[in-house]
Amino acid sequence: MADKQYITIKGVKDGLVFLLDDRCEFSALLDELRYKLENTHQQLLSGPLVHVQVKLGNRRVNEDEKERLRAVIRQQGNLLVQSIESEHPAEMAAGRLALKVMTAIVRSGQTVEHEGDLLLLGDVNPGGALRCTGNIYVLGALRGMAHAGCDGDEKAVIAASLLRPTQLRIAGVISRPPEEWISGDAAMEYAFLQDGVMKVDKTTQLHRLRKESVFFKGV
């Protein structure tokens, strides 16, 4: 194996962090990863379930390459990949890592556009619009228009403290809030797509839709 080290493995409180070099060939990374997991770090890596965070530095990888990284790490039965993160600016913008937090009242005639997820602290008034490639979360009243997943992401959702929109759009689906949407109670709600049809439910139900693996501490 090469004398150069491309991969640094660090132990942190809740698992391991794999720091991958961002200038070498991707194949070299995979080779070294395989070598380390199978040979040098054998003892360290055996035992109970360990969460792994993979940090790519400035490297950009596509979904295929991410999957290959996961496959290598998964071969070691007790390792669970929690996240693969890149610090590349384009990756940050495109990925869900980029949650933009904004404090504003979006008034009539104003539009907020963003690549990624948006968290708005404030209201969207009738005539105002939010347009995002990712999810939209509004801590306030959504009375205007919101378009989540505007590049075609049908998994995007729109959540608001008070969901009273003039119109909602997710990916290519446009919906006007029918009467039954207006629940009248103060619960926070979100809109999502189910089989190409827009539905609205209480935000407390959102985790059932997402089915994200959540790692709680102290259990």
């Binding site: 008034r107 009539s108 005639g109 104003q110 008034n125 009738p126 005539g127 105002g128």
Partner: peptide
Amino acid sequence: RDADRVIGLLE
């Protein structure tokens, strides 16, 4: 609605 638009411009 129009007042809201104007307030936005004034802000």
